[in-house]
Design a protein around this nucleic acid. Sequence first.
DNA 1: CTGTATCCTTGTTGATACTG
DNA 2: CAGTATCAACAAGGATACAG
Lengths: 132, 132
Amino acid sequence: MKEPLDPEMFDPACPSSAMPIRIGDKWTAMVVVCLEEGPRRFSELRVPMRGVTPKVLTQTLRALERDGMVTRTVYPEIPPRVEYELTELGRSLFGPIAACRAWAAAHLEDLMRAREEYDEITAESPGGAQLA
Amino acid sequence: MKEPLDPEMFDPACPSSAMPIRIGDKWTAMVVVCLEEGPRRFSELRVPMRGVTPKVLTQTLRALERDGMVTRTVYPEIPPRVEYELTELGRSLFGPIAACRAWAAAHLEDLMRAREEYDEITAESPGGAQLA
DNA sequence: CTGTATCCTTGTTGATACTG
DNA sequence: CAGTATCAACAAGGATACAG
């Protein structure tokens, strides 16, 4: 517990963007997963969430705080230190997140195959609707 | 089965917009629920999904078709008739959707309460961050 | 009836730079 | 370190009108 976050834990090339089920917005689920092992600091979170700007990360964290999913604790030190931690309500998202992962494991491949097939067919015949 | 869709089945005033879990985009989950009892026609779907423009409904249905969630069947009649029906893959979304509903039943009230409280506090003291 | 075409508004995301 | 400020780019959603 509380090992450093893996910079590779969210691969931009993974097909999660195809997921029909989303937790909040683009970054919310990543934050929740990052906080699974305990409190994390602002800059710790930036490591695996590559490409996120501080503005967007702040927006995401503020939204989670507003909804009672995370707490924000400021330690009045120099340099400043801020820790984000999941509340019980935030941890209650693990259930749905696990359900999403289970769905993905069972069906994401079917989805991707259907999508490729559809794109092939519509590419060669733009009016390719099925008739009865 | 196959009773007319209730025009009130999606109340715009309900707090589902607060849900941290989403199925696809704004309209996707509604379509899936509408198709739960069997095939539906384009204009049938427009009834409960009040305010959706034909363009957006078409986009939603095309995306679902592309992902193998629904089939689109054209009956070459006059006037034209088109039916949309869930595939097995589409029906597999019922599990996650049920999980979302269960989460909402258990926790949505907590979320709404946290949100109201947060908004009250930040309204009176814009710098109201917790200290340690 | 079942869409398409066009235009527009709005919100979200991001890049960049700067502050306590 | 932990953000905020500002601006730019884009995409989603919607209004309206029209077509096969």
